[in-house]
Simulated assay, not measured.
Amino acid sequence: MSEEKPQRVRIVLADIPRPSRTAATRTELTEQTHVGDALVRGLVRAQLALAVRLTAVVAIGLGGLPLLFAVAPVVADQRLFGVSLPWLLLGALAYPFLFAVGWAYVRLSTRAERDFTDLVERP
């Protein structure tokens, strides 16, 4: 009986299928490892920092107006189109200001999420 020797197979490192970087990063996220947790915390921190900055803009922009009117009564006594300036600023112009801040928040937070997605899906 002659036993056949198994044929030698040459293995080349490039021929071994390896998970791509994207798959590895997705695995880190789905399995909630330390790396995935750090990536998600980075995204949350970026969005929280954006929210805090824009909250400060609103607080200074709208909260500073009553302070301005108290400190400078001459400004509070001004009339524009027959309406006192404080009523005009706080009653009418506050809404476009808040809309612009909201638009900026959505735009910038979407950009942060897009950057996060690009980081995760980067080859």
Rank of each mutant, 00 (worst) to 15 (best):
L88A: 05
S20M: 02
F116H: 08
Q32G: 06
L88H: 00
G64C: 02
P96D: 07
R79T: 06
R21A: 10
L62A: 09
P6V: 11
G82R: 01
G102L: 08
R114G: 13
V57K: 02
Q32P: 03
R26A: 04
V75N: 05
L50R: 13
A92K: 03
L85S: 03
A92I: 05
G61R: 09
A92S: 07
L90N: 14
I11L: 11
I16Y: 06
L39Q: 08
F69C: 02
R53S: 12
A100G: 15
D15W: 03
P17S: 10
L85D: 01
S109D: 10
V35H: 09
P17C: 13
P86T: 00
F99M: 08
R10V: 11
E4V: 09
G36T: 02
T55D: 14
G42T: 00
L29R: 03
K5Y: 05
L13S: 06
I60Y: 04
L67R: 03
L62K: 06
V83I: 06
F69E: 01
R107I: 12
A24R: 14
A56D: 00
V101H: 06
L98P: 05
V71G: 02
A24I: 12
A72S: 13
R122Q: 13
G36K: 04
V57G: 03
F116M: 02
L50G: 11
R26L: 15
R41G: 09
R107N: 13
W103Y: 09
E3G: 08
F116L: 02
E31A: 14
K5I: 08
I60F: 14
T33I: 01
V9M: 08
A104E: 08
L98I: 02
E4S: 04
R107D: 15
E28A: 11
A94D: 00
P96S: 08
L54E: 07
G36Q: 03
R18P: 01
W87F: 04
P86A: 02
E31G: 10
G102A: 15
D115L: 12
A56W: 10
P123I: 03
L65Q: 05
A14F: 10
T27A: 08
P19W: 09
A14P: 01
T27V: 10
F81Q: 13
P86Q: 01
V44G: 10
L48P: 09
G36P: 00
V83P: 00
Q47M: 14
L119C: 11
A46I: 03
V57I: 13
V52D: 10
W87C: 11
R18I: 05
T25N: 13
S84I: 04
I11Q: 09
A104S: 13
R26D: 07
R122E: 14
E121Q: 12
L108V: 11
A72R: 14
W87E: 06
P86I: 00
P19T: 09
R111G: 14
V75F: 07
A23R: 15
G42L: 01
T25F: 09
V101C: 06
L43E: 01
L88G: 05
S2P: 12
S84W: 06
Q78A: 06
T55P: 01
V74Y: 03
R79V: 10
A59I: 00
P19L: 13
G82H: 00
